[in-house]
């Protein structure tokens, strides 16, 4: 059954970090038209159940591959590296120090009277940094030998920090209203 295939082949995409996100969306819609439970609503329980399984798998696949972090983690997972529950990779102190500084910056911005503009700029900075990590991951992953996979794993850990920071910024933004 296709449902056991990996997300990339399920969606007919090359197994790579640089995927065409528009093609991903287009394939998502095409497959929804084929698989969605609404297409099976008038049919028997067995068919409906199958359709729910397939569609849930499709939703999961697309959600994972759409997210820059999720896609990176999934590619490592396919190579036998678990970055979701295993956090044993050691990061260099310089990076951790930088993270602390960024968090201090966010606290300072929060304390401002009207932090909207500063918050926007800070978000741009974090997003920019994340994009750099994405590029670095892509370069590393394409080599695919043991050493570069190890580097890629460390980059994913760094991405996790940045994504978390992005979420914190969003929270602050939501509280502004």
């Amino acid at each position: 059954m296709d449902i056991q295939q990996n997300y990339f082949s399920f969606l007919g995409l090359p197994e790579s970090y640089n995927i065409d996100l528009q093609a991903l969306s287009a394939r998502y819609r095409e497959l929804q038209k084929t698989l969605h439970p609404d297409r099976f609503a008038h049919l028997s329980e067995r068919e409906k159940r199958m359709s729910v399984q397939y569609t849930a798998y499709l939703n999961e696949a697309v959600t994972t591959l759409k997210s820059p972090l999720g896609r990176a983690q999934y590619l490592l997972h396919l190579n036998g590296i678990d970055t979701i529950s295993d956090a044993s990779v050691k990061l260099e102190p310089a990076f951790l120090f930088e993270q602390m500084e960024l968090r201090d910056d966010l606290e300072d911005i929060k304390a401002q009277v009207s932090p909207e503009k500063a918050l926007g700029l800070f978000m741009d900075k974090v997003t920019g940094q994340l994009l750099e990590y994405q590029q670095a991951f892509s370069d590393c992953f394409d080599v695919r030998d043991a050493a570069s996979l190890k580097t890629a794993t460390a980059i994913v850990r760094k991405m996790q920090f940045m994504v978390k920071l992005q979420k914190e910024i969003e929270l602050v933004e939501n509280e502004l209203d």
């Binding site: 059954m1 969606l11 394939r27 084929t34 698989l35 067995r46 068919e47 199958m50």
Partner: peptide, 28 residues
């Protein structure tokens, strides 16, 4: 009905997979 559904399950899966391929091919 249950019995026939069961023996045709595999055929149903194969068709589902074929449909997925068709959907993707249509795209290409």
């Amino acid at each position: 009905v249950e019995r026939l559904a069961k023996v045709s399950d595999e055929f149903a899966s194969r068709r589902m997979d074929l449909n997925i391929q068709r959907a993707l091919q249509g795209h290409s």
